[in-house]
């Protein structure tokens, strides 16, 4: 390899490192719902969902014939959206079989959001159980509910549960719009 090629390689490497320092694009001009309107829609719809209860009927492919059930409740409360800071905060409480599993405040900085997806809770539950070493477990969830997953860097995810897939999709679209208003991008109205 000649020195010239080495310099090209070093320059390319430095270029890659510098690419991460590029500031986000400027906020686009409003053509759809404003950030305030979008965040109010988000807060209203998520707060409306309130407390969701469901039962997971679990089977284990490594132990044919085994099935057991777990009763879950998940409740979002005090969801507040700060348009100035581009942040959503909420309290999340879950119970499994009557015992508290989580009871904490969470924040989502919309500028850090990478992806927003909606999937059946059965699919989300399978992924969660697999992450904890139970890839052979599958859950049938009753009633059928849908999970909106907000993904950030380092595998950090926040979820919101909806009993209606259509509403989950609308909220996902609104959240996507809010993220775009916070960091710039597509302005298609939800």
């Amino acid at each position: 390899m000649t020195i010239r090629w080495l310099f090209v390689l070093v320059a390319f490497t430095c270029g890659l490192a510098r690419a991460q320092d590029v500031p986000p694009p400027p906020r686009p001009q409003d053509t759809g719902p404003s950030l305030d309107t979008t965040l109010k829609f988000l807060a209203d719809k998520i707060n409306d969902e309130g407390r969701v209860g469901y039962t997971a009927f679990v089977t284990d492919t490594s132990q044919p014939g085994v099935e057991w059930s777990n009763k879950f409740t998940a409740a979002v409360s005090n969801l507040a959206a700060d348009a100035k800071a581009c942040r959503i905060s909420f309290h999340w409480r879950t119970e499994v079989n009557g015992s508290s599993a989580d009871d904490k405040d969470y924040d989502i900085d919309l500028k850090d959001v990478r992806t927003i997806v909606v999937m059946p809770q059965e699919q989300n539950q399978k992924q969660i159980d697999a992450l904890r070493g139970h890839s052979a477990w599958s859950s049938r969830i009753e009633p059928n509910i849908f999970t909106l997953i907000v993904r950030r860097a380092k595998g950090i995810e926040n979820v919101f549960l909806f009993s209606d897939e259509g509403m989950a999709g609308r909220v996902a679209k609104a959240m996507q719009h809010a993220v775009e208003l916070c960091v710039g991008g597509n302005k298609e109205p939800f």
Binding site: A56, V58, D60, Q63, V66, W68, N70, F72, A74, W92, T94, V96, N97, A101, D102, Y106, N124, Q125, I128, D129, L131, R132, H134, W137, S139, T147, I149, A153, K154, G155, I156, E157, N158, V159
Partner: peptide, 20 residues
């Protein structure tokens, strides 16, 4: 590795069958 270790998701996992 950090992205896996730092992962969080409020979804509670299933708990094992008490009898199993």
């Amino acid at each position: 590795a950090g992205s896996v270790l730092d992962g969080q998701n409020q979804t509670p996992p299933n708990v094992p069958s008490p009898k199993i």
